[in-house]
């Protein structure tokens, strides 16, 4: 147990974070180079103000037409993404690890709140899976890559929930949880999860075109 724990919180953690940060940086940089080389006629119209205008308008629930047309999905995806980011960052147990390893300490969420938010993430994952199975327009376009992304995101929260409540074998579960989290981090730059890296830019580009060239809203 101790050796396994040492490994997953030590070398493996460095490895996963390394892939996540360096991978994301490399993907962003190479995409930037590619955009400048191959998409010059689009790149030329990038505009910070219109980018932010578009991003902000899409960050407001039910503001964009896309959100208003699919209310269940809107609630699910906003709740999902907010909890997905906040829980791992502000979880007491995670902050304790930051303190233990690096002496860093910051504000935390009460465990009960984090627990509820984890259930929100899991419920949203179920909704996403349900849509892929039952809604024909989603089922039609769903591929293995989409299921993979969903599984990668679900596992850290599922195992985290089980480990926190010490259901099943705790020692196995906590290792599984850490590994699942590391898989997610490392997968971000190279799977559908890369929308975490790129979505702001695809949105910004559309915002720039609609704002600066087409003088119309894009939400």
């Amino acid at each position: 147990m101790n050796a396994a724990y040492e490994f997953v919180t030590g070398p493996l953690a460095w490895f996963a974070w390394g892939i996540f940060i360096l991978g994301a940086a490399w993907r962003l940089y190479s995409m930037y180079q590619l955009a400048k080389k191959k998409d010059a006629s689009s790149w030329a119209f990038m505009d910070l103000g219109f980018s932010l205008r578009s991003i902000v308008n899409w960050l407001i629930p039910f503001n964009a037409l896309g959100w208003r047309k699919s209310p269940v999905m809107t609630v699910a995806t906003f709740a999902f993404h907010i909890c997905l980011i906040l829980v791992p960052v502000f979880l007491v147990a995670h902050v304790v690890l930051w303190t233990e390893f690096f002496g860093i300490s910051y504000a935390t969420l009460p465990d009960s709140v984090a627990d509820a938010m984890t259930l929100v993430v899991l419920a949203a994952c179920l909704i996403f899976a349900g849509r892929r199975l039952t809604q024909k327009e989603v089922a039609y376009i769903t591929t293995g890559k989409d299921w993979l992304a969903l599984v990668i995101v679900t596992l850290p929260f599922l195992t985290g929930f089980l480990a926190y409540h010490q259901i099943f074998d705790y020692q196995v579960m906590i290792i599984a949880h850490i590994v699942a989290g590391e898989i997610m981090l490392a997968a971000i730059p190279f799977t559908r999860l890369s929308h975490m890296v790129f979505a702001a830019f695809t949105r910004a580009y559309m915002g720039s075109e609609f704002g600066g060239v087409r003088h119309a809203r894009d939400w």
């Binding site: 179920l126 909704i127 349900g130 039952t134 809604q135 010490q166 259901i167």
Partner: peptide, 23 residues
């Protein structure tokens, strides 16, 4: 969308019962 609702309720039930068992 309406087809999602039962799934949602089911998910809720599973999670709540797990919580009770744990406590």
């Amino acid at each position: 969308m309406k087809r999602i609702l039962p799934l949602l309720i089911l998910a809720g039930l599973v999670c709540v019962s797990a919580l009770v068992a744990v406590q």
